[in-house]
């Protein structure tokens, strides 16, 4: 196990390094920062001065290493737009994004898993066919258009939920949260539902195929033969066995959820890191984009790593050597 952990850590750091090179080359070399920052009336001398001030007149490899050593020390540079260090800028928006993501996962699990188990147990029923059709429809609706529909129905027509913004927050341990606040929760509901619809479809399909597989196992036949009542059979024997893939895939999809939050946060004007990324792309605020991407890559590496290790702990049949 230890050698597995060490090898995976090694691989992960190589991955982060490669991505940092790609992001660096992409953001600082392919598009010239001097051309972006210089105004039209700049003379050639002004350009050279600006280039040396930004440090882009140095050899590429020197630039990369100074960039890397700054990143390692947590210095991602200063935002062109906000004129603040980039790292705190991102970190202070992180709770808003994570809050919605977790609510979406919770909604997805609470609705998707029961629907999936029901479909798996009653394969021939009409309701099952309807659920299956609905999941296909749910998969086919692009995230951003779902968001518009939700706004149109709940904010414009029914006027029951707010369409944008974060509303009131409660400060807990110095972090602003919407969870413990009625107004905050009301603002959070539509973005969370928006992110959850795809999750519901996915969890339903996962739980359905899991249930179909498990129900034909010998241990289920044996449990039924022992006379275990159906509710207990489902709770203790079925649920436990289908939960492993559901938990792992939900974990792995956390990254995808945060990626898609760029879309959701933009539509609902939710002040999280996704909206920050998109605003920064529009404003050519390069340091923020670079920092966001590098942080996201690191997050992915950590999530994949944790899921792999958890998998080995949850399922004793998997042994890493």
């Amino acid at each position: 196990m230890l050698s597995f952990v060490l090898r995976r850590l090694g691989q992960s750091s190589v991955l982060v390094l490669i991505m940092s090179i790609l992001v660096f080359v992409g953001m600082y070399v392919v598009s010239d920062p001097v051309a972006v920052l210089a105004s039209d009336d700049f003379t050639e001398e002004d350009r050279i001065a600006l280039a040396s001030e930004l440090g882009v007149d140095r050899p590429l490899i020197v630039q990369y290493f100074s960039f890397l050593s700054n990143v390692v020390r947590g210095d991602f540079g200063t935002s062109f737009v906000y004129n603040e260090p980039v790292l705190p800028l991102i970190v202070e928006r992180l709770p808003a994004t994570l809050e919605v993501a977790f609510l979406a996962i919770a909604i997805g699990l609470c609705i998707g898993v029961p629907l999936g188990i029901y479909s798996g147990l009653n394969r021939k029923k009409k309701t099952t066919k309807t659920i299956s059709l609905l999941t296909t429809v749910g998969y086919s609706i692009p995230n951003f258009w779902q968001a518009l529909l939700l706004i149109l129905v709940f904010a414009v027509w029914l006027k029951v939920l707010p369409a944008s913004g974060r509303g009131d927050t409660t400060t807990l341990f110095g972090i602003e949260l919407s969870f413990f606040n009625l107004d905050g929760l009301r603002h959070m509901l539509l973005p969370a539902i928006n992110l959850a619809i795809y999750k519901i479809c996915m969890q339903t399909r996962l739980a359905r195929s899991g249930t179909q597989e498990v129900m034909f196992q010998d241990y289920m036949t044996f449990a039924r033969a022992k006379g275990i009542p159906r509710p207990r059979l489902i709770r203790r024997h079925l649920m436990r066995n289908i939960l492993i893939p559901i938990v792992t895939i939900t974990g792995l999809e956390l990254g995808g959820l945060i990626a898609f939050s760029t879309v959701t946060e933009t539509v609902f004007n939710w002040p999280g890191i996704g909206k920050l990324l998109l605003d920064s792309i529009h404003n050519a605020d390069r340091p923020v984009v670079v920092a966001y991407l590098i942080l996201i890559v690191m997050m992915f590496v950590v999530i994949n790593f944790v899921v792999d290790v958890l998998y080995a702990l949850l399922d004793p049949r998997i042994r890493y050597t």
Partner: peptide
């Protein structure tokens, strides 16, 4: 592996941010 470990929409956003 590198490509698949990264969500497509973010990759596309990143590329479009670089290349216009």
């Amino acid at each position: 592996d590198l490509k698949i470990s990264f969500p497509g929409i973010l990759l596309a956003l990143m590329l479009l941010a670089i290349f216009g």
